[in-house]
């Protein structure tokens, strides 16, 4: 695991900008796109925004819910579900998308990237 102090932290928005179960996309300095999700329970998750099945950068626009209690987002393109915590695709065991560390500090949502 990457040590926290080696990460670059990008403030992407104010925490108050996020609404539960409605993702937003953010652009990191390296050009990577992350999808940010606030669950109904109040936990924050950041995954790669790129849907691996279509190649479109759209995961932030998927529907957020749960599968057997596990928070997931469904890709809006072909509907595969991704575990918000691990990025694991629940419909294709071989597929997993990158997750990013995310913290709220000083009222801002910050995403860590190497």
């Amino acid at each position: 695991m990457t040590a926290v102090d080696e990460l670059t932290w990008t403030a992407v928005c104010e925490f108050g900008d996020l609404e539960p179960e409605r993702g937003v996309a953010a652009l990191l300095p390296g050009g990577e796109q992350v999808a940010l999700f606030l669950t109904y329970a109040g936990t924050l998750h950041a995954l790669s925004n790129v849907d691996p099945f279509s190649g479109a950068a759209v995961l932030s626009r998927g529907i957020v819910g749960d599968r057997t209690g596990m928070p997931v987002v469904s890709s809006p393109v072909y509907k595969q579900a991704f575990d918000l915590t691990t990025g694991q695709c629940l419909d294709e065991p071989d597929v997993r998308v990158r997750t990013y560390p995310v913290v709220v500090w000083d009222g801002f949502v910050r995403v860590g990237s190497p």
């Binding site: 990577e32 925004n49 691996p52 190649g55 294709e92």
Partner: peptide, 11 residues
């Protein structure tokens, strides 16, 4: 094919 960006594992 699958994009490489953001993909940790894939066929």
């Amino acid at each position: 094919g699958m994009p490489t960006e953001g993909l940790l594992a894939g066929p």
